[in-house]
Design a protein around this nucleic acid. Structure first.
Lengths: 113, 113
DNA sequence: TGTGAGTACAAACAGTCGTTTGTGCTACCC
DNA sequence: GGGTAGCACAAACGACTGTTTGTACTCACA
């Protein structure tokens, strides 16, 4: 088992991590497969330190996972953090909102549209 | 047909808007129905100006819509901006990633979904 | 064991963002 | 029409954060 990702802290970490364009670009690079830090840095034109920092943020947010391969650290996309965001968004979707509305009104909600 | 919400600008606005806890709290309040600015401010313990500012950010990001009712401005959740985020996340979700993950681990993962 | 590649850690700087304070504007009420 | 409630706009302040620069650490290799 894994989940219970809907905690406020995890959601906050994931959303703040996704708010940065460079971090999204890094996720885009890792999307096609695991990449080393230097590889990502070169591909995006970022410095090694900046890339490492962003990868640390992504990892802390559960959006990336690290795998050491010799001296290279391979990073890949992790859906752990994405799950928190996704379930959060789902709660705002119209279908859910209709059900929620009914629940809030508490009644059989036939009186109002 | 309306969409094409996946533009980088829209996605960036939506994610940066969602990155703030107070703005998410505002969305949480509006989730049960449209609310006035003062109502939201009182309910969350924020100042009127701060609340108005955050609502402006949410509106610019397509996450909230405004409806004037007399002197009161009613804000409600809008799924326009949420769609951009959702479709962005979906690109990381598909079974591709699961297969990719298996590839990363180096073995043919036979786990289920 | 010595060398080099690859990466993380730490401090300083600069830009951005959220909050506060002050004010002007619009719509309702008497 | 005068008074008031409700909200947005604008500037200043403080805090957070992304980037840079410098450095220490680990692992592969000869």
């Amino acid at each position: 088992m894994s989940a219970q990702p809907a905690s406020e802290g995890d959601l906050d970490l994931a959303l703040r991590a996704l708010a940065d364009p460079n971090r999204r670009a890094i996720l885009g690079v890792m999307r096609t497969g695991p990449r080393a830090v230097g590889q990502i840095a070169t591909e995006l034109g970022l410095s090694q330190q900046t890339t490492s920092h962003h990868l640390g943020v992504l990892r802390a947010a559960g959006l990336a996972s690290r795998t050491k391969d010799g001296t290279r650290h391979l990073f890949a996309v992790s859906t752990d953090g994405l799950g928190a965001v996704r379930s959060y968004l789902d709660d705002f979707w119209p279908t859910k909102l209709v059900a929620l509305k009914s629940a809030v009104e508490g009644r059989a909600g036939a009186d109002r549209g």
